[in-house]
Design a protein around this nucleic acid. Structure first.
Lengths: 242, 242
DNA sequence: ATTATATAGATGTCTATACGTCTAGATATC
DNA sequence: GATATCTAGACGTATAGACATCTATATAAT
C-alpha cells in the first residue's frame, strides 16, 4: 500500500484521481494500457473500492480514461482539452492567451422586450430588459459587436456599475445568479451595412453570427445576446460528445 | 414508502432518477423548488441513500437539478436540451427533424497525409489516409461539402463499402472504433470559387467553415474533416457549460 | 443592537461488504 | 473442428452506517 500525499482537507477520491492523472500525463500509464483494477487500487492506497471508483469516474467524465464492463479501465489518448467544452468569459480566456482585450460600451438603456428577447429570457413581451451594446477589441482591433439583453427585474442595480471594465458575469454573480450554461446558435452571414460600419469592415465581409442564451445555475435565463464576430479574426472551438 | 415501478433488469437508481424526472416534467416538482432530501427519498422508496444519490447526480449532470451543500437539492428550469451538447450523425439528426437527406460521393481515394492531416490524425506525414469528398443535400439542395480524411491503416476494408448510403460512423464502429468525441473549430469565410462551384452559390457568399476532428472512445483520432456549409441554409447549435 | 455560539438539516466523503453482469479465455463435449 | 459450458477477473449495482462540512436559523452572550 502506497501512501497518498498527506494533504489535509483534500478528499481521498480527489487525491487518487490526481495520482492517476499524473501517472497518465507522465506516461507511466500509457495510452490504451489497462490501469489496475478498482480492487487493486483500493488495496494499494488503503481505501475502499467506492472511493477509488469515484476518482476514476471523474477521469472518465473528462475523457482521460474509458472502461468496459467485464474488461477493465483503460487510458484514453489524452487529447481532448476539457476547456473547449467550457463556457468561458471573454476577458479571462483572451487574457490567458496573452491577447490584449478591451471593450467599449456603445449603449446601455432599459427597453421593453420585443418578442424574440422575451421568449428567450422567459419573460412577458414588453417587460423591461437592459440592453447593453458593446464593441470588443482584441489587440486594439474591433472584433466583435455584442448586443446583450438581460432582465431588468433581476439586475436593476447593474445600471450603476462600471460595465466597461467589469465582467458582466461577475456582476451577475454579485446579484445572486451564477452563470452556468449557454446555448449558442451559430451561422455565417454577410456583415451588412450597419455591422460593417460599427466594426469597420466591408459590408460583404463574412461574419460569424452567434445567438447566445445564457442560464444561471438554477436554470434562470439571465442573458440573451447577439454576437457579430469578424470572420477573419474570430474562430470558435467547441467540443461535443456522442 | 412508495413502491417503484416493478421493472426487472432496470437498476434502482435509474428508476428513482426517472421518477424524479417525471415529477419535474409533470410539474409536481416546480422550478426552483426544493426536492425531498436524500434521506427522505431513501426512506420513501425503501432504498439506501447512496442509491438515491446516484440517481440525483445523474439529473444534476443533465442540468435538471442543482444542489448546494448544507441547503438541499433544487429543480432547475428544464430548458437545456441535452441534445445540443451531443455529437450527432448527419443522417440521424436530419431525419429526426423530417428533413430529406442525401449525399453524393465526389471522390474516394487513398492519398499520403499532408502535414495538417497527419498532425490531426496523429500519424506520420506521408502515411496513407483515405480521402472522402462528399456533397450533402438537405431537401434536395446542396448544403455542405465535406472533405474527410481517415487513417487507411485502421479502416482499409472501408474502401469496398457503400459509402453513399451508409453512415461513416456506423462503418467505423463495425471496424472496432466507436465514435465518441469531436472538437470542432468554426469560422465564417467567403465561399471562394472552388467551393462556390461545387455547392452552386456565389463565390462571395458566406460559408460556415468547420474543421472537425473526431475521436473514438479510446481517444484514437479516427477522422479529420473540413466542412463548408452554406451560410444561409446551415446553422449549428451548441451547448456549453462553465 | 451586535456578535458569538449552538443546532438542525442537508449534502459531501468514506467504509466494508455482497451479489449481479459482462468478457475473454479455458475446458469439456459432441 | 465446432460448439457449449464453466470460470476468473473486472466493472455495475446496492446496502447500512459513520462522520465531516456547510447553511440558515435560533439562541445566548456581550
Amino acid at each position: 500500500m502506497t501512501t497518498l500525499i498527506s494533504t489535509e482537507g483534500v478528499p481521498l477520491y480527489v487525491k487518487i484521481r490526481e495520482v492517476l492523472r499524473t501517472e497518465i500525463i507522465n506516461g507511466n500509464l500509457k495510452r490504451g494500457q489497462k490501469i489496475p483494477s478498482e480492487d487493486e487500487l483500493a488495496a494499494r492506497y488503503g481505501v475502499s473500492r467506492m472511493t477509488v471508483r469515484q476518482g476514476i469516474l471523474d477521469l472518465i467524465d473528462e475523457g482521460l480514461l474509458y472502461r468496459r464492463q467485464g474488461l477493465g479501465t483503460f487510458v484514453a489518448f489524452p487529447h481532448i482539452e476539457r476547456d473547449h467544452t467550457r463556457l468561458t468569459n471573454f476577458f479571462e480566456s483572451a487574457r490567458q492567451k496573452g491577447i490584449q482585450v478591451a471593450q467599449k460600451i456603445l449603449d446601455v438603456q432599459v427597453v421593453p422586450a420585443r418578442r424574440k428577447i422575451a421568449e428567450a429570457l422567459d419573460i412577458p413581451v414588453g417587460e423591461a430588459v437592459i440592453h447593453i451594446c458593446a464593441l470588443r477589441y482584441a489587440n486594439y482591433v474591433a472584433v466583435t459587436l455584442h448586443d446583450s439583453y438581460i432582465p431588468e427585474k433581476l439586475f436593476t442595480p447593474i445600471l450603476s456599475e462600471n460595465l466597461e471594465d467589469t465582467s458582466l458575469w461577475d456582476l451577475m454573480e454579485k446579484y445572486g445568479y451564477r452563470v452556468k450554461r449557454a446555448i449558442q446558435k451559430l451561422e455565417a452571414r454577410e456583415a451588412g451595412p450597419e455591422i460593417a460600419r460599427l466594426i469597420g469592415i466591408d459590408p460583404a465581409a463574412p461574419i460569424l453570427y452567434k445567438e447566445r442564451k445564457i442560464y444561471a445555475e438554477d436554470g434562470t435565463p439571465v442573458e440573451f445576446t447577439f454576437c457579430y464576430n469578424r470572420g477573419d479574426l474570430y474562430s470558435l472551438t467547441v467540443a461535443m460528445e456522442r
